[in-house]
Nucleic acid binder design. Structure first.
Ligand SMILES: NC(=O)c1ccc[n+]([C@@H]2O[C@H](COP(=O)([O-])OP(=O)(O)OC[C@H]3O[C@@H](n4cnc5c(N)ncnc54)[C@H](O)[C@@H]3O)[C@@H](O)[C@H]2O)c1
Ligand SMILES: NC(=O)c1ccc[n+]([C@@H]2O[C@H](COP(=O)([O-])OP(=O)(O)OC[C@H]3O[C@@H](n4cnc5c(N)ncnc54)[C@H](O)[C@@H]3O)[C@@H](O)[C@H]2O)c1
Lengths: 221, 221
DNA sequence: CCATCTTTGTGCACGCGTTCACAAAGGCAT
DNA sequence: ATGCCTTTGTGAACGCGTGCACAAAGATGG
């Protein structure tokens, strides 16, 4: 029976072994003292706990550059996610296959969600359309949203939103880069400022937003 | 003079006003008691602190679906990032313009980095090539990397890596989704398990990895 | 069957980030 | 000028996650 010790796993994941053991203990006591954890059983338990033993149908709304890349991405399927439908507002795209899946028009959104029992939606529309799309998804029964548009979505309680903002990722890198390049100690205010910076820009009289409502320019430019 | 109070900003950003004030205090005391913060000055100070007042040249390596979408993304420029070059290993792509920028071959990588003084690199290659690309970038002088490939990159001290893993974002949503759908209290082990799950899969004899070395399948499938 | 050795599971303490709460500061009206 | 009112800046307390350290568990070998 192949096993791993918490020490080995901790080294591989780059975390403390005690923390790892404590985390595992929340799932129950699957380890064997003096031996370690049964790899196969452990993988199964974690998979089950994380919800990987079931297939999650997802819809992607907004099949532009990013949406198409996501549709083509094979990494989702291997983690238990199935692209149930691609949805776009552009009538010219309707019926056109992307990654082998025909794009459907936004009109069908509610029906698609309902028919497929979709509870997870991905938003890859321009920022200006995101909130509206979000509301339709939620109204149709979606309770988890992965948002790529650079907007803060407001949703009712019970709905989870995760935002992927690539600009902020780069900003965080640039921030640390600046540190390395000089500027002695300075402040320790880091990523926390990010959200606040956005809020400040918004407070600046909404003048920071472009015509199509995309990324608020924090820099006066 | 347009001003904002910490209370207003905190409400907008969804954080505690005391925390926000304390964060700002690390940048110095820019507020006026009884009035609030001068919006314009505040925005400038935060921009400067975050490194947004200078332009950062970045290179994108791996111009496939995702890399092309990134190259086309306008949100970078508005935050002070300039796409200095697009790099791909496919000779067929060399010279072909993507988003108006001609793709250059990997052979030129070191020269491009050096000529443009690039310190931030984006990796959008398949997972199997990521570590190698990473090493070349670092050797050429890049000290910050944004990694989209589903691999843990190992880098020398002094180099920052941020990883964007869309599968994990979806997994986190699915995890909470599963909670809502039943399964009473259970464990509170959440995202912390993600990294450990990957390590466990790796420990499972590397059998979880596909032929092209993409996403390790945590689920035995 | 007992001794020994390895590794788990977890109580406890430490440290850090968040929040509370309030004195000091400054504007503004009278 | 004086007093009042608003909002900042921050000391102190709280809470939580992390890591240490060790007793208990179990395997393994003699
Ligand atoms: N491309 C990137 O790398 C990238 C990176 C970060 C963030 N983003 C963000 O992701 C979003 C999409 O980026 P993109 O580059 O794919 O843009 P895009 O313009 O190429 O695609 C947007 C798509 O959304 C569709 N759309 C517009 N309104 C819609 C609506 N109401 N309902 C359904 N579909 C609608 C459009 O028809 C179009 O196909 C943007 O908000 C962008 O800021 C993109
Ligand atoms: N497409 C997505 O939505 C998505 C989402 C999450 C993660 N990812 C990850 O991002 C990466 C890219 O995804 P994609 O869909 O764009 O894949 P892709 O196959 O479309 O593109 C990969 C590109 O990298 C180039 N390449 C290969 N080896 C290279 C090397 N050594 N040096 C430089 N270039 C090289 C290829 O020529 C190709 O153009 C993958 O690791 C994928 O797992 C993609």
């Amino acid at each position: 029976m192949p096993t791993v010790s918490s020490e080995e796993l901790a080294a591989a994941a780059g975390v403390n072994s005690a923390k790892l053991r404590k985390d595992f203990s929340y799932l129950g006591s699957y380890g064997t003292r003096g031996v370690g954890y049964d790899v196969e059983y452990l993988v199964y338990q974690i998979s089950r706990e994380l919800g990987l033993t079931q297939d999650w149908p997802v819809v992607i709304v907004g099949i532009g550059n990013l949406g198409a890349a996501l549709a083509n991405y094979g990494g989702f399927a291997s983690r238990g996610f199935r692209v149930a439908a691609l949805i776009d507002a552009d009538p010219a795209m309707a019926g056109k296959p992307v990654a082998g899946i025909p794009v459907q028009h936004t009109d069908e959104l509610e029906k698609i969600i309902d028919d497929n029992g979709v509870s997870i939606g991905v938003i890859a529309t321009p920022a200006g359309a995101a909130q509206q799309v979000c509301e339709r998804l939620v109204a149709a029964g979606v309770t988890s949203i992965l948002n790529f548009a650079p907007t803060v979505l407001s949703v009712p309680d019970g709905v989870d939103v995760r935002k992927v903002d690539l600009s902020i990722e780069l900003q965080i890198l640039a921030f640390h880069e600046q540190r390395k390049a000089g500027e002695e100690a300075e402040a320790q205010a880091d990523a926390a400022l990010e959200a606040e910076a956005g809020a400040a820009a918004a407070a600046a009289g909404k003048s920071g937003k472009g015509p199509d409502g995309d990324v608020p320019a924090v820099m006066p430019a």
